[in-house]
Amino acid sequence: MGEYTGRIEIARPPAEVFGFLADLRNMPRYLPTVTHVGPRGRHADHDDIAVEGRAQDHAYRDEGWLKAEPEQRRMRWGSHTQDGYQGSIVVTEAAGGAAVELRLGIDPKPEVAARLQRDHGSVENGMRLALARTLGAIKACCEDAEGVDNARDSDDLPDSRPFGSSATLNPDI
Rank of each mutant, 00 (worst) to 15 (best):
M1T: 14
E3M: 12
Y4K: 00
G6K: 07
R7T: 11
R12N: 04
P13F: 08
P14M: 02
P14L: 08
F18K: 05
L21Y: 10
L21K: 06
A22N: 12
A22S: 11
R25T: 13
P28E: 13
P28K: 02
L31I: 10
L31A: 14
L31Y: 11
P32F: 11
D48S: 03
V51C: 12
Q56N: 09
D57M: 09
A59G: 13
R61Y: 06
G64C: 09
G64Y: 12
G64V: 11
G64A: 10
E69H: 15
P70A: 12
R74D: 01
R76E: 06
R76M: 03
H80V: 00
H80K: 07
H80F: 09
G84M: 08
Y85I: 11
Y85P: 00
Y85C: 12
Q86D: 08
S88W: 04
S88E: 05
I89H: 02
I89D: 05
V90R: 10
V91L: 15
E101T: 08
R103E: 04
D107M: 03
P108S: 04
P110W: 15
R115M: 13
D119F: 03
H120Q: 07
E124H: 00
A132M: 08
T134G: 03
A137Q: 10
I138W: 06
K139G: 02
C141K: 00
E143M: 04
E143I: 00
A145R: 09
E146D: 02
E146A: 06
G147Q: 01
G147C: 01
V148M: 07
A151Y: 10
D153I: 12
S154K: 03
S154N: 05
D155E: 04
L157A: 10
S160P: 13
S165F: 15
A167N: 10
A167L: 09
A167S: 09
T168H: 15
L169T: 10
L169I: 13
D172Y: 07
I173C: 14
I173W: 15
